[in-house]
Amino acid sequence: MRQYFGRKLLVYGLTFFVAVTINWMVPRFMPGDPVSSMVARAGVSNPGAVETMRTYYTNLFGFDQPLWKQYANFWAALFQGDFGISIWVFPTPVSEVIMGAVPYTLGLMIPSVLLSWVVGNWAGAFAARRRLLDNTVLPVGYVLTAMPYMWLAVLLAWGLGVVAGVFPVAGGYSFSLQPSLSVEFVADLLHHWVLPFLSLFLVALGGWAIGMRNMIIYELESDYSNYLSALGAPQRLIRRYAFRNAVLPQITGLALQLGVLVAGALVTEIVFSYPGLGSLILKAIQNQDFFLLQGTFMFIVLGVLIANFIIDIVYVVVDPRTRAGMAGAQA
């Protein structure tokens, strides 16, 4: 057991190292020069002042140092929890910008991913081998999965937001409010949360339901189900076993979903102008904000790794076959 997790941790550590290195490299190899754009933004025309500003910013961000030194500094800063200073909202530290966006993204993604998983699995399992339900759940599921996400999101925003006017179509909260812990603000927050949540929830739902339905049918046709039926075991017991076994591949699927959790909301956040990490990535790219981009990606990498590690542990708990594999050489 310890050996298994030791090896896993080593792999995760390596992945982290490589991912962070790539994170560091990608913005730096993007075309364009952030310092020039910052200077240009200041709108100074005096050549002497431009030169001073350029030197100041270059120094501040450490761009005057050789690349390898920048890389080393980056790691050193990282371990102190320092992600650098944002270029886009200069001079706010990147960590602060990210921390402002993270609650929105997590608050949107975690409920939608988990709820769609739970509801989808439940609906799929319930529909399998029940003709009437199967004939409704399956087509609805296909329509939902096949629908382009942006289209569904726009449709929801237009239908429920513009036409019906039930929900606001943009922003994390009303512009007239200041973030606070008041009842009014929280209600407003939830009100703005419904549409993006619903769009993410619906789009993922169909896929889970279809997957689960197929898995359940496969399990109900398996030998152990047949054997239990031959011994007269009630459908309830057989279905319970089938569900337990069919949910295993779905857990793997969930792990993959959790992986894209942090970044996955990008399109949603853009459609609904939701102030989460997705919008931040877009802003960072548009403004050539190396540090912000780096920081967000770092956050995503950490999210993927942690989610996968949790699923690894869950898997060991729920599937005895992985435990047997651990004792042998092939973990």
Partner: peptide, 24 residues
């Protein structure tokens, strides 16, 4: 169903996979 297991029982062709793999 009432007769199965109590009166008539079966050792299936597929004994190798007749038991639920995720239950003790």
């Amino acid at each position: 169903n009432e007769f199965r297991f109590h009166e008539v029982s079966l050792i299936p062709q597929y004994s190798m996979s007749a038991m639920n793999p995720t239950r003790k």
